[in-house]
Design a protein around this nucleic acid. Sequence first.
DNA 1: CTGAGTGCAAACGCTTTGCAGACAG
DNA 2: CTGTCTGCAAAGCGTTTGCACTCAG
Lengths: 146, 146
Amino acid sequence: MSHTTTDIPALIRAHGYRLTPQRQIILDTLCAMGGHVTVAELFERVHAHHPAIDRSTVYRGLDFFRELGLVSAAEIGGAAIYEISADAHPAHNHLVCRGCGDIDHLPADLFDDFAARLRDQFGFRADMDSLTISGFCRECGPVDGA
Amino acid sequence: MSHTTTDIPALIRAHGYRLTPQRQIILDTLCAMGGHVTVAELFERVHAHHPAIDRSTVYRGLDFFRELGLVSAAEIGGAAIYEISADAHPAHNHLVCRGCGDIDHLPADLFDDFAARLRDQFGFRADMDSLTISGFCRECGPVDGA
DNA sequence: CTGAGTGCAAACGCTTTGCAGACAG
DNA sequence: CTGTCTGCAAAGCGTTTGCACTCAG
């Protein structure tokens, strides 16, 4: 999978930053892994192909891309998980299965009704992209899980 | 505020455990602080009155009470927050304001509709008590906040 | 008495940071 | 050339753990 829908080097340079090989590798790897990747997983993969790249470089790279809006971060179970934030799926939330650990996307529109109710009843403007709901997915019913 | 609605010593002994002064202090302090307390805050307060009580004892105490169901834990912004889980408010979620940092309770029934939709459309059985929604409360509108 | 519970101190896992050198622009 | 970025190593943070001692029952 490629992430060349946007001109990333140009975007980076427009901000006065540099596109280094390390950053390319980090972004490529994250992209190749699909989504919902922990730093540990990403680093493991990066390190397998490029042993010279340091863990801190991965952290800094992810943070860098996050600030550019190319990557989004969520916190699931204490550890940070990252994914490419394509223009295709802008704001979305996460369903995390306590059984199999799988992470699913939750379309934002499903959340809209709920968010509207929060705003009406509580005056609370909820972030549309930082919600993590844990529970059990179809395959991991609470019955066979617990 | 007192937490003597249930006979805590009896409950503890029924499980074969002991009610130590440290545990009493931890529970009393947590209770006195109301709710949504980080371990750091709780320890600070405990330590002010009882310097001999160790941080690890607070952690172990909280964990102990959590297993007994007297206390519930949530993870907000990387740090664990604790609160008394009275029978009065069994399952509830949290609204965390990114502006003032305040944490509000979200009645479970408001979440019910949404949870039902998740179940119908995704076959996902969401936990009713582990949801943390961040955003801006009435006082901290995104406009004046950012 | 006895072992559940404590204080101490050290280690843990994840993340961040200071620094000197390296390389993209 | 310049100063952004890297690798290294060390520290930071919140939390957990091993140990010998203590005290609730």
